[in-house]
Design a protein around this nucleic acid. Structure first.
Length: 581
RNA sequence: GACCCCGUAGCUCAGCAGGAUAGAGCGCAGGAUUCCUAAUCCUGAGGCCGCGCGUUCGAAUCGCGCCGGGGUCACCA
């Protein structure tokens, strides 16, 4: 039950009844939301102001008519017209108790919506090059994409979580050659790793595995053949490594899409280029070197260009390299055409800050290959600066100057890592201070929220101890007399709970999981605040040994708080412990 | 030179498909424990919402132009 959506519908219905000539366009701009100042009531709507102009009426006049209409609504305690034509509702107490009932009845589904209408959406995230373990640079996008995918699934989309494996470029050839050296090393040769190769220790086990499988047989094969075998092995191993790293943050993908499968004679890139040609989206031409910074090796030549500017990009983009191979972007067009052909009209890509220049051409590609039928939202996750006690932090246990994802998770844990990264808008750069994240204080929102959740359990433990006769089963609490929850404090907490469905829906719609994290913090705060009130006023305690009816009603409230905290934490992939140790 | 992101309290950040008196945490000053785990709560001080112009009944929010910070810029991936 979403009271805001409920009243949005009622307002629209009322307007249609009052002004039959009203257009759907005008109705769509109506919002019903909590007023910024709670003194203005529970719900506020701009309906009269939005609708007045097209109707040629005075906003206050429309508002008055609406107010009169709602005077007979039994769920409404009072309606006021305020300011230029705001409609402010104060709701009758029973409807808040209905919210509580619906939390209990809907459980994990409280907050779910169908704004996605069952449409399929492809969320691509991580897509780190399979050349080694994950490092922190990947972590933010990984967590963001994972939470966004969950959020959209919860909001009625059919979500596919996808990982694009960049396993076709020259960096993979270098990876194979680097691995070949480790193979020789495993066979007893002493090796020297040239610069430009991958020096990481993580390739040593791959070399040993190759030795175990093939002995020294690979050395007898032609180099190209041997390298192909080595490449397959190292790619498989690197992806295992990456999957294991992601699993530490509880991140899993549905589809791992290999770039290699797009290449080759008659592959997707070939057919896509042919298609682009027949569509007239490709031509032979020259590009201007970028102003202000001409690359040293700039070579003015005629090349195969995609008409990206026709679709909003700044320049047309090359599809074929000077050595005759396809560019990365050519493969990416084919890849996104493939997504479209698999039936995705909604796509989301999560990329790192270093790809911000890539956004427009990706959007251009999707527009072109779908003739404008599909849309892609590219979310850029800005840089994360690692700190320790406020000082920039360089940690390097195993791999050059990189900080590994597994190091971070080991250091601070999955919950804190995920929550901290999600407790920030994705498009703002952020600092990640190990010292703060590890601290279990109010500085660290994840513990604050988890503590609220644990507190709901400790209330129940307390009741079991003090009032063993009280039935605290879900069925018993569902029958509790909620009308006993009539204090300001009770209603305030219930109103926080009532926000949840609209928060999730708006977060899913805007592709902004951080809204969920902030909401959870606020709900935790409301719950902690209620607790403290019980210290001053015995009537506001959760547990009243001499009043089992009130206690039962309060337990129903506490149970609802717990349910919403769990629902939110689950979406963010953060655990909800029953007790903090 | 161009493109993208950011600029809100001393610090870290919310708020931005326009809406009423701009919020939170930290820090600072004071206070609270007869329910659970004080890992908490309450009160207070603290703001030309980077600057300017424009659109509007109404702008932190939208548009344009500056300023400052970060990122990126044919063929790498």
């Amino acid at each position: 039950m979403n009271v805001f959506a409920l009243f949005a519908t009622r307002v629209a219905d009322a307007l249609k009844a009052l002004y039959p000539s009203i257009t759907g366009e005008a109705l769509s701009r109506i919002v019903v939301e909590p007023p910024r100042d709670p003194g203005h009531g529970d719900l506020s709507s701009n309906a009269a102001m939005v609708v007045a102009k097209p109707l040629g009426k005075n906003p206050r006049e429309v508002a008055m008519a609406l107010a009169e209409h709602f005077g007979t609504d039994t769920d409404v305690a009072s309606v006021e017209v305020a300011g230029p034509g705001f409609l402010n509702f104060r709701l009758a107490t029973p409807i808040w108790h209905d919210v509580l009932k619906s939390v209990a009845a809907e459980g994990a589904a409280f907050g779910k919506s169908d704004i996605g209408k069952g449409e399929r959406v492809n969320v691509e995230y991580v897509s780190a090059n399979p050349t080694g373990p994950m490092h922190v640079g990947h972590t933010r996008g990984a967590v963001f994409g994972d939470a966004l995918a969950s959020l959209m699934a919860y909001s009625g989309y059919e979500v596919t979580r996808e990982y694009y494996i960049n396993d076709a470029g020259s960096q993979i050839d270098t990876l194979a050659k680097s691995t070949m050296l480790r193979y020789r090393e495993a066979l007893g040769e002493s090796i020297d790793i040239p610069s430009g190769f991958y020096p990481g220790d993580y390739l040593i086990p791959v070399g040993q595995r190759l030795k175990g499988k093939f002995g020294s047989a690979l050395l007898d094969k032609p180099e190209a053949e041997a390298l192909a075998i080595v490449k397959d092995q190292v790619l498989a191993d690197m992806m295992d490594l990456i999957r294991a790293d992601l699993a530490k943050l509880n991140i899993h993908h549905d589809v791992f899409f290999s770039e290699r499968q797009l290449h080759g004679q008659g592959g997707d890139v070939d057919t896509t280029l042919d298609w682009l040609r027949t569509e007239g989206m490709v031509y032979q031409g020259r590009l201007e070197p970028p102003k202000g910074k001409t690359p040293d090796d700039w070579e003015d030549r005629e090349q195969t260009l995609f008409r990206a500017t026709d679709y909003g990009d700044d320049v047309d983009r090359p599809l074929v390299k000077s050595n005759g191979q396809y560019t990365y972007f050519a493969a990416d067009i084919a890849y996104h055409r493939n997504k479209y052909q698999r039936g995705f009209k909604h796509m989301v890509n999560v990329l790192g800050a270093d790809h911000s220049g890539y956004v427009k051409r990706l959007q251009a590609a999707v527009k072109a290959v779908s003739h404008g039928e599909a849309e892609i939202d590219v979310r850029i996750c800005q840089l994360v600066r690692l700190l320790k006690n406020g000082e920039p932090f360089k940690m390097s246990k195993r791999s050059g100057d990189l900080v590994l994802l597994s190091d971070v998770v080991e250091e601070v844990g999955s919950d804190a890592t995920r929550f901290m990264l999600l407790y920030r808008r994705n498009d703002a750069a952020m600092d990640f201070d190990f010292a703060v994240v590890k601290e279990q204080t109010r500085d660290n929102p994840v513990f604050y929220v988890q503590y609220a959740h644990a507190r709901t359990y400790s209330v129940f433990r307390k009741v079991a101890e003090e009032m063993p006769a009280l039935d605290t089963s879900a069925q018993a609490l569902a029958a509790a007399d909620l009308s006993l929850l009539s204090s300001e404090a009770d209603l305030e907490l219930i109103k926080s709970l009532a926000q949840w469905p609209r928060i999730v829906a708006s977060a899913a719609d805007a592709h902004e999981p951080h809204r969920v994290a902030f909401y959870l913090y606020e709900l935790a705060s409301a719950f902690h605040g209620f607790w403290a009130k019980g210290n001053q006023d015995v009537a506001l305690r959760f547990v009243n040994a001499d009043d089992s009816k009130l206690t039962a009603a309060r337990l129903a409230l506490v149970g609802a708080v717990r349910q919403v905290l769990v629902n939110g934490l689950t979406l963010l992939g953060v655990s909800a412990p029953e007790a903090l140790s």
